[in-house]
Design a protein around this nucleic acid. Structure first.
Lengths: 225, 225
DNA sequence: ACAAAAGTGTTCGGGATACACCCATGC
DNA sequence: GCATGGGTGTATCCCGAACACTTTTGT
């Protein structure tokens, strides 16, 4: 292998209408406590970094076609040398002591469109509230923080938010998403004025169904992906 | 070597009072045309990515103590396989065909404080206008673009501009720097109002010397590095 | 009728923009 | 005295923030 110690790790964000969630995997049990981690794996020859990130997500979680962006490279010489990480490394890596450089990605998914299922060395895949992330393997908690920061900056530039919403959504859903990601409350009238005036969304004729109150108008994002 | 095909490449920006410049190296001549590149080199064992970037700049240009920030990772399988790059790779790399993943950095220097001088495999080091960058080796032109984009975003957040100015500077110098980086013109009165009201700079009692017109007041940056 | 969420306008303050002339110094 | 850049104030516009009540639907 040409790049034996380079990997990609992905922070997959999903929004469920209330909370911002991230996708974690539980690594195979080796007689230890539960070990949680971000989905990630070594880079293979002949694949680009972006391709590696896509492949990893497909292999470990079954997700494909996600919006993916780099959010940093992590290469501290000791980033994989915590003793808790050693048993797993010894069974999965030909050179368990080697420092691994990882390229971090964040991904956004419309949760309704995807149904992650564990495979590869992931024993289990599950969504967790982003404000309640457990201790993760390696330096994955650092990577997660950086991914969230990057997402927040991108959201303020109004470039990515729609990747987390269904095709048709209500303004309340959109506002909740912003509030969940940025951890702030917005005024309903001001929020609506802004997204409509600035042409971020386009109103549809359709309305919400199946709710036991006044159904809200649906909107779609105005920009191309 | 544990990470044989990982490198760092650095875009060093400097401001000369008029123009934004970037530091390039000319690679050793191998009977070809001039070959220009960003300063960069392979990662060594036991050094972090940031440390590698510092070392590379010291070894190739003599510069130390620079402000350095990551601005992306580049790992396309073909990024080093342009035929023009092969002769150089063959004399400098044990595995010239190997794909190299590089972590890109940008650095900011006060040009007056530093005097870059070529060493290592750099035959020559020189400043070039950032709007007149020649064709560079590998994908270094792409890396340069991304570094400039990153610098511009950071400058708007007003975090980094002062790294390019002398300790004491005039507001006209500061404005020129912003204009050079962002490629826009600002109104003199508005610019001054802003940087003074928002406490970005602190006026000194000192004035400019050695100019053949009314000497300008000097300022210093108000924040800590 | 009642519960639940949808939907809607106005006021106010602060920051960004546009704009032109006099001043101090060196030669 | 003249050339060169230094230095200064005001009016306007737009955007973001604060704020509360009526409407529509399902049960």
């Amino acid at each position: 292998m040409i790049n034996p110690n380079v990997s990609v790790d992905c922070v997959v964000f999903g929004f469920d209408g209330q909370r911002l969630n991230a996708l974690l995997i539980e690594q195979e049990d080796l007689g230890q406590d539960h070990r949680f981690a971000l989905p990630g794996d070594h880079l293979q020859d002949e694949e680009s970094l972006d391709e590696a990130a896509s492949r990893v997500l497909k292999e470990l979680t079954g997700l494909t076609g996600l919006y993916l962006r780099q959010c940093g490279a992590f290469g501290d010489p000791n980033r994989v040398s915590n003793t808790n990480d050693l048993p797993w490394l010894r069974t999965h890596r030909s050179n368990p002591e080697a420092r691994v450089i990882t390229i971090a990605y964040y991904a956004l998914v419309k949760m309704e469109d995807f149904n992650p299922s564990a495979s590869g060395f992931a024993k289990r895949v599950f969504w967790t509230d982003t404000y309640d992330i457990p201790a993760l393997a390696f330096d994955h908690n650092d990577i997660f923080k950086q991914a969230l920061d990057t997402l927040r900056k991108a959201l303020k530039d109004m470039q990515v938010g729609f990747k987390l919403l269904p095709e048709k959504f209500t303004l309340t859903q959109m506002q909740s998403m912003h509030e969940a990601i940025l951890r702030t409350a917005f005024d309903k009238r001001n929020f609506r004025k802004k997204v409509i005036n600035d042409n971020w969304v386009i109103p549809l004729e359709e309305k919400q169904t199946g709710v036991d109150h006044k159904p809200a108008r649906l909107y779609r994002w105005s920009k191309k992906d």
